[in-house]
Amino acid sequence: MEPHQWTSGYATAGARFHLSGNRSGAIVAGVSSSPPRRVALFVTCLVDLFRPSVGFAAVKLLEDAGCIVEVPPLQVCCGQPAYNSGDRASTRAIARQVIDAFEGHPHVVAPSGSCAGMLAHHYPGLFEDDPAMKARAEHLAGRCHELTSFLVDVLGVTRVSARYDGAVTYHDSCSGLRELGVKQQPRTLLGSVHGLSLREMKTPEVCCGFGGTFCVKYPEISNAMVGEKTGDIAATGADTLLAGDLGCLMNMAGKLQREGRAVKVRHVAEVLADMGDEAPIGESR
């Protein structure tokens, strides 16, 4: 099966998520004259299983920015669960598979700083003893981007066409922030969303306590961390929490809901793609 068969350019009716956004490119700053770019979406395993709307939001944002989006079929997970548990052999096998899956795609974009950081920062080091694989891993690392960073830093997008009526607060997920420098990009784009105001937390850069398997290996510590986070979130008075990583969002949403706090939780891509009417994370409507 050829990758190009997976392009979304024809997507219209029938799917739950209608990719009927503004295709004209009118909202895209500075890229209207460039040829469309081929972008492969790294969906991430959490988005695939729990929140497909984030994937479709990413597709819409990329298409609106003039990209042709492809979804290579043989992708599963970036390998972090094995990598962070010390299972280097499995991590290498999974990394190999991801490198194969995205071979030949000029850009790889993920709606997650954590997964993009894994590909961009950690894959090459897995193959110190295998120069050929290391070279391929480095090649992938150089092509791999977090979604908002790709839109702003690579494509030069500064505005999106979206409306969201509410006060939001933004959590900087750790890997995106510290491995990829994702900080201003989502805020730049959120600044163009009609009706949206941003209220910063006291410590938006402090970890929410998710940490992948950490949250189930050390649930009490993780709980203390996320409890501190939700307190900080609530103190802003914002009605919506946004972030760029689904793992962190599920953790914070789960805690906010357990505490009975009426804060809606969404992935930043959903709001930027004008899909803010989707039921928030952990809610049925």
Partner: peptide
């Protein structure tokens, strides 16, 4: 997880790849 937090259910409609 659920000792301290609710666990978000998946969106209905199938996985991203299915859709």
């Amino acid at each position: 997880w659920t000792r301290f937090r609710d666990f978000p259910a998946p969106q209905p409609g199938g996985t991203f790849h299915t859709q």
